[in-house]
Simulated assay, not measured.
Amino acid sequence: MLHIKRILIPLDFSPASVAAAEYALAFGKELEAEEIHLIHILVLGPANDLYTDVLDVQDPQHHLQNLPEEWQETWHRLQHQVESAGYAFVPGMLQSDSITTPLVKYAQTHQIDLVVMATHGRTGIAHRLLGSVADGLIEYAPCPVLTLRADLAEKSYRDVRKILVPLDFSERSAEALRVAREYAQRTDAGLTALNVIARTEHSDLPASPWEKAYNDKNPDVRQIHKLEAFIRYAGGPKVRLQTALMYGDPVEASQIYLEAYPQDLILMSTRGRSGDGLFHYGSTAEELVRRAPCPVLTFKQGDRIRFKHARKKTSIAEA
């Protein structure tokens, strides 16, 4: 099963980042996470996203005393919530003139299994940390990243019972589906495997995303068969799973589906094989992360994903 032991939560003390931290505590309990790494970055000069040296503050409590009193209260409250929930609390403060780089380095050196953060904040540093830095972590962090829009982060945590998995037939989306099945088995959630056919691929597609064709001469039936074969190839534990086929722009079609059938979580790969998947980050996936009406858990090529039990390899011929 999916094994999330260490969760990293970047904190800039904005309401969105605090709410994301509280969301992470509830999310982590479903996965039996053990450690919460709460990290604040002491920015030295103008923040930038260039490579920079990172200094690990050896005594976080000492530097905490130099922060505004309201921030200190927030830190201690979160620490109490972390420890009361049964997690090991690992505080950290980093000094750097960038934001993305130290978080990526920290995740690498501390073998972080999951990063949880909001996708945008208010203004100034908060906006920079929770906006472009979320993009940077999704692109460069060595592990999956769970992002929430700021307005969603500030709502109460809702148990994950419905999961949407966009599939583009890449190897990475196959792994995302397998991870989703592991998670769904653990939480008794239901899955929807969504595939979007771009209109440029077929000139005879229906005008409406909802219009269906039911004979084998039409592309949607062939695509459903292909989708079902891909699901068998991806493998994973047996869970409640249904397929969905939409037409048109991947983001717009996904939005239409999510409005009609609200989900608790989107779990997706952000790059296909060699970065050529439909949902590769920088285009479709980036827009979906920013506009999704629910939290988004993203994976990419090279992420460290740990399972408590080894997976039996399956070939496409065996699926």
Rank of each mutant, 00 (worst) to 15 (best):
107 A>E: 13
317 A>L: 15
158 R>W: 00
242 Q>G: 02
129 L>S: 07
35 E>N: 10
262 P>D: 11
170 S>G: 14
62 H>L: 15
188 D>Y: 10
89 F>G: 07
47 A>F: 09
315 S>V: 09
84 S>K: 08
81 Q>T: 06
199 R>Y: 05
299 F>T: 03
309 H>L: 13
73 E>R: 14
144 P>T: 01
194 L>N: 02
60 P>G: 15
272 G>D: 06
110 H>K: 13
231 I>M: 01
19 A>G: 02
179 V>Y: 00
137 L>N: 07
154 E>M: 15
190 G>V: 06
138 I>L: 06
136 G>N: 10
250 P>R: 02
172 R>D: 07
54 V>T: 14
291 R>E: 07
280 H>Q: 10
60 P>K: 15
69 E>Q: 12
314 T>D: 09
137 L>A: 08
224 I>G: 04
42 L>N: 11
77 R>H: 11
39 I>M: 10
174 A>K: 03
275 G>D: 12
30 E>Y: 06
228 E>C: 08
296 V>Q: 01
36 I>M: 14
182 E>W: 05
300 K>W: 01
284 T>Q: 07
42 L>M: 14
151 D>Y: 08
115 V>S: 04
173 S>K: 05
61 Q>L: 15
85 A>P: 04
80 H>V: 03
164 L>F: 02
284 T>Y: 02
110 H>I: 08
187 T>I: 01
182 E>Y: 09
35 E>I: 11
160 V>Q: 07
26 A>V: 06
237 P>G: 13
242 Q>M: 06
162 K>G: 00
287 E>H: 10
240 R>S: 03
3 H>F: 08
86 G>C: 08
5 K>D: 10
63 H>G: 02
